[in-house]
Write a protein that binds this DNA or RNA. Sequence first.
DNA 1: GACGTGATGGCACGCCATGTCATCACGTAG
DNA 2: CTACGTGATGACATGGCGTGCCATCACGTC
Lengths: 186, 186
Amino acid sequence: MSRWQPDARERLEQAAIALFVEQGFAATTVPQITARAGLTTRTFFRHYADKREVLFAGDEIPAMAARMMADAPPDADPMTLILDGLETVTRTRFDPRRHDLRQRRRIVRSDPALQERDLRKRAALSEAIRSGFESRGLGPTQAALLAETALTLLYVSLDEWLDADDDAPLHTYIEKTLSVLRDTIA
Amino acid sequence: MSRWQPDARERLEQAAIALFVEQGFAATTVPQITARAGLTTRTFFRHYADKREVLFAGDEIPAMAARMMADAPPDADPMTLILDGLETVTRTRFDPRRHDLRQRRRIVRSDPALQERDLRKRAALSEAIRSGFESRGLGPTQAALLAETALTLLYVSLDEWLDADDDAPLHTYIEKTLSVLRDTIA
DNA sequence: GACGTGATGGCACGCCATGTCATCACGTAG
DNA sequence: CTACGTGATGACATGGCGTGCCATCACGTC
């Protein structure tokens, strides 16, 4: 028998989400979360830098983006790179978690502090993509524009995908959004 | 003689910026700011919702955007609306404040919490534009894309404009950025 | 059996942010 | 001239956030 139950991190996350749903993010205290998880306040902050981070843990997606961009052939077309990258990321990280993402969106929308953190995570992904394009030799303006455009496509499409009740993968929404973007900007 | 010196808000802002430059945002406490401004901690939070807000006070720009979009002729082209709006906003609110904006950017970049607030202000402007386009009858996707694209143009161009040392107005950078965007996406 | 490691508990502490009430200059009505 | 309302500030208490520091204890290793 171990001294502590395993999966402290997961227990903290589940307890936090449950309490956020029950009584809201701001009204939930860290001691409440840790009490439900059977841990102490100090331990919470060892796993998460702050109270919001329990909803945003992990930077696997920026890492995935950086890896894909570094591994792609040097002459790949930038927009193709973005669409292929979005296809892979959404298929593996978004499509299977539609219900979770809806619940998470509902919580995030309920509190400005959570929206700020969400925007920071979005910025982190944008920066990873921008940096990847610069490493591939693109100019600073083009790299920044491509990264921002990729995030715009992802977030605008994600919102519509979460609102819809079909079974289409997120990528089909992204392709439709891109075609609207092309028509609108030209 | 009045009981208190006037311009409490301005004194707080100037004291805060000076201290942020001297010792960093995180290392500066609200009592330090209010002491330098000759006020109390409680008064600081009457003027600003939190410590970060002293750097981001005012939502005149989203309001200006909303007004311009409501006043424009009903048949105006969306992209023209964006470019004209950006031209007016940058000429009146950015071009005359280049030095201040550089200092502000340096402070914001030094602290993640300030970056988050900056992103929230960006999102607020995007939302104002999106809402304006929806009121003008555009579809949700198009409205969201136009708003996000406007913000991308503004922020990407702003960064390059603040890095440069010419005397060109910000809008010339925006036009150049837009042409790069059109070439890149097509 | 001794020792290092790693996760947790426990405690103290400073700062952030808010609620509440008191204070006091100013303007205005009577 | 006085009384009153108004609005900004001061003063105090409070609760939650986040961190530094050290102790504890199971586990694996030597």
